[in-house]
Nucleic acid binder design. Structure first.
Length: 469
DNA sequence: AACTGCGGGTTGG
DNA sequence: CCAACCCGCAGTT
């Protein structure tokens, strides 16, 4: 069940058998088909900081990754993590952002650009067609994840809140005032606001400036979980809840499974920092709600410290590998059937696989564009994306069924198949030679980059979670 | 203030 | 011609 479509195809599959669960952190050359009712898809959301890119094709929305903002000195946060801010999408705002100092050590901030697609930023394409929203990603992020959009927003609002309240209560007891605020919101909002209240880079900034000293570790890790849980569960990620494995934004958590699947040998377990996470996963924190996994991940992040010590080094490598691995791979390896294993969506997890992480084969050429698609023809009612998003009411049940039934059937097989190929044929090719897109595309995707620094990076991870502060 | 999407325009391959 | 990218505009959040 090979993916039979490309975002540029004049004619996309009609009436897809099933819709994928929304993926917040798509990575690699993957494709998904979301329901046109999926809110996150409608908004073209992504955990990665993606900015709109003009491809002069109004049928296909193209976005490119802005990378991640880190501390130039890659200082360690109280929890041992590194700062990984979400780059502002707006150019102007981003420039401002970069002028600010690291909230933790006060040194400069640095924007690590994404070069995961042949040296260029990873690109995401969105296209609405009928009842489906087709999504295609090209490139493998070669940098840590920034905060998710929700986290960034939460942090921002928390900062605002803090600032205003701080000013008001400044004379009294700034410290307590902050703590108090953490309890005044109710319900869902509470979850969202707790986190920011408790952590977030800004808080650190505040801490520094006001000499607050709240040990990050003393905060309940669960709050991270809540941050994700609330918004995702209650609002945006409903679909995810339906699948056995939620589209956890953090691939690392699932690594063990997919990887062992694919390669049979979970070497990463011993060679990567995962063990740490894994261990954390078993902590009581997780249990019930699948989304807790997200939280646990964050927790794990907090506890693990290693890594990422030398960002400079990593980034350097990354740059290098960006070139080497550049080629493109095709995306066809994608496991879009992943609904039941959203995880597989083909991505990051596998990069932690044995040895070379998966990247795409350098053989293929990069097909980044959305060239003109003459599909106007078939798309008579080319509405705006948002237009017909709301008129499909009966899709949900259908979607669910599809997820449960057809979703999982192929993923395993397909994956193996793909990786087998990748492994045997594509993995070690360095040859930057580009081949013709057309066919190469058919070939498979996902080979790991040879020296994927990112893998290392991510693996150890320390992606900064606001909570860490 | 930022985000988001649009679209004109430029540049380099 | 293609793809990346810059810039401003306008509607939202």
């Amino acid at each position: 069940m090979k993916l039979s479509w490309d975002i540029n195809d004049p004619k996309l599959p009609q009436e897809p058998k099933h819709f994928d669960a929304f993926q917040e952190w798509p990575d690699g050359y993957v494709r998904f088909i979301y329901s046109s009712e999926e809110k996150n898809a409608q908004r073209h959301l992504s955990g990665w900081a993606m900015r709109n890119t003009n491809n002069h094709n109004c049928q296909i929305l193209k976005k490119s990754c802005l990378g991640v903002v880190v501390c130039a000195r890659s200082c360690a946060m109280p929890g041992g993590t590194r700062l990984q801010l979400r780059p502002a999408i707006c150019d102007k705002a981003r420039q401002k952002q970069q002028k600010k100092a690291c909230p933790n050590c006060n040194s400069a901030l640095e924007l690590i650009p994404c070069r995961g697609h042949s040296g260029y930023p990873v690109t995401n394409f969105w296209r609405l067609d009928g009842k489906a929203i087709f999504f295609q990603a090209k490139g493998v992020h070669d940098h840590p994840r920034p905060e998710s959009k929700l986290e960034a927003e939460a942090r921002r609002s928390a900062v605002k809140k803090h600032m205003s309240s701080f000013h008001h209560s400044q004379k009294k007891r700034p410290l307590n005032s902050e703590a108090g605020r953490c309890h005044d919101s109710g319900g869902y909002a509470n979850n969202l606001q707790n986190l920011p209240c408790v952590d977030g880079p800004e808080r650190v900034g505040v801490v520094a400036d006001t000499s607050f000293s709240i040990p990050a570790q003393s905060y309940p890790l669960l709050q991270n979980t809540d941050l994700y849980k609330a918004p995702y569960n209650s609002a945006s990620f409903q679909e995810d809840q339906l699948s056995p494995y939620p589209a956890c934004p953090n691939p690392r958590i699932y690594v063990p499974r997919p990887c062992s699947y694919e390669f049979g040998v979970p070497t990463f377990i011993s060679s990567s920092p995962y063990p740490t996470f894994y261990k954390d996963l078993t902590s009581p924190v997780i249990d019930a709600d699948p989304f807790s996994l997200n939280g646990s991940h964050y927790n794990a992040v907090t506890t693990s410290e290693k890594s990422f010590d030398d960002p400079g080094r990593h980034y350097g490598l990354k740059a290098a590998w960006g070139k080497a691995s550049s080629g493109d791979r095709s995306d066809y390896g994608q496991m879009q059937t992943s609904t039941s294993h959203p995880y597989y969506s083909g991505e990051s997890p596998c990069r932690y696989g044995p040895s070379p992480s998966p990247i795409a084969s350098p053989l293929q050429t990069v097909i980044t564009t959305t060239t003109k698609v003459s599909y106007q023809a078939y798309k008579p009612s080319t509405l705006k994306y948002s237009d017909n998003l709301c008129d499909v009411k009966n899709l949900q049940s259908y979607t669910h069924m599809a997820e449960n039934i057809s979703g999982s059937i192929y993923s395993g097989m397909k994956i193996q198949e793909d990786f087998g190929i990748v492994k045997s044929a594509l993995l070690y090719q360095h040859d930057p030679t580009k081949s013709k897109p057309a066919e190469s595309v058919e070939t498979y995707r996902y080979g790991p980059p040879l020296g994927n620094s990112y893998a290392e990076h991510e693996g150890q991870t320390l992606r900064f979670e606001s909570a860490e502060y």
